[in-house]
């Protein structure tokens, strides 16, 4: 009798163990089928691939300009004040502060990996067609750096150290706003995230990410339906969707007046997402857990323009954890960005 019971117990234990192993194996197999959707492209960043000996000089100039607060009217705000490399190229605030510490209407997005966007639509609402066009916006905007562009040009001309940088980059020593836009755009194209644990896993390192994250990856592609919008290696379709956050900002519809674009915003990349809280265009989600809660509900607010890809998910507690653990594997250890010594007067 005793022997029989022990035997039964051993059998049950063995079958549980083999079930667990089987479940793990099948989730690995599922994961395999999605891996190829997230491979990084090979070769240089688009826009930085042309044979141009001046390119390095243009990038160097852009690097100085990006960190230089003197191109703001108060002399105290640089691009990096809000797009801070120490905070995933954001500012860590729900809504950042512009000129005179005035609150901005939208959350500061990252500038990571933007060189790969083919959508010709920058900002949350896609109103700028290129990084070149985009760069001059915040300098001029009254709420941001508040600097009239001709005044910016005069300021840069008055800084002797910039003479040689503009000359090396563009040939003549003349400073134009177009050159400033070009240099800032090319510098930003160089800001690319490196391999994260997720990428090492794609490349075959089985232990680069944990089991929970692997399950999260499958959920991301299946039950949670995230990958339909957060697609490709940057985890964005560069598209515009209303995910039901429910504030008053009409978003993309202000640029392109279609019903489906009311309250639609650009899908952000999920690279280094862990470093970039708080989240969403209004900074309304403090943590990744809060983000998952919104999707699990199918958005805070239904409306005719709510994306049909956002719906109640009925995720279990464990599934929510798995998704968060997966998102955390997208963070790379990018080498420390060196803050430049700026050109002198």
């Amino acid at each position: 009798m005793l022997m029989k019971m022990v035997g039964l117990m051993i059998l049950t234990l063995a079958s549980i163990a083999s079930n667990v192993a089987e479940a793990q194996a099948s989730s690995e197999a599922l994961a395999e089928t999605y891996k190829s959707d997230f491979q990084r492209p090979k070769g240089p960043v688009p826009g930085l691939d042309e044979e141009n000996p001046r390119k390095q000089s243009v990038i160097k100039l852009g690097y100085m300009l990006f960190f230089d607060p003197r191109i703001s009217s108060s002399g105290s705000l640089s691009c990096a004040s809000c797009h801070n490399p120490a905070l995933g190229w954001e500012d860590g605030l729900a809504l950042g502060h512009g000129h005179g510490m005035k609150k901005l209407p939208r959350h500061t997005p990252t500038i990571l990996n933007l060189g790969y966007s083919e959508a010709e639509a920058f900002f949350w609402d896609g109103r700028a067609e290129s990084l070149e066009a985009q760069a001059l916006g915040p300098i001029e905007a009254a709420g941001e750096m508040n600097m009239p562009l001709d005044q910016m040009v005069r300021t840069l001309e008055s800084i002797k150290g910039y003479d040689v940088l503009f000359k090396q980059a563009f040939g003549d020593g003349k400073v134009t706003k177009e050159q400033v836009g070009k240099a800032l755009a090319d510098y930003q194209r160089t800001i690319v995230s490196k391999d994260a644990p997720f990428d090492l896993w794609l490349k075959g390192d089985k232990n680069a990410i944990g089991e929970s994250a692997k399950r999260g990856f499958v959920l991301f592609n299946e039950k949670a339906n995230c990958a339909v919008c957060h697609s490709g290696w940057r985890f964005t379709d560069d598209g515009f969707h209303n995910i039901g956050i429910g504030d008053d900002d009409v978003g993309r519809a202000k640029v392109l007046d279609f019903e489906i674009l009311r309250h639609a915003f650009k899908t952000p990349t999920l690279r280094n997402i862990d470093l970039r809280a708080p989240y969403f265009h209004d900074g309304s989600a403090a943590t990744l857990e809060d983000v998952i809660e919104l999707y699990d509900k199918g958005g805070n607010k239904d409306s005719p323009s709510l994306s049909s890809e956002v719906r109640q998910l009925n995720l279990t507690g464990r599934e929510k954890k798995d998704l968060v653990n997966f998102l955390k594997t997208l963070t790379s250890k990018d080498n420390g960005i060196v803050i430049p010594t700026l050109p002198k007067k």
Partner: peptide, 9 residues
């Protein structure tokens, strides 16, 4: 273009 995905051009 696609209004949802402007990269489709």
């Amino acid at each position: 273009r696609c209004a949802i995905h402007p990269k489709m051009k």
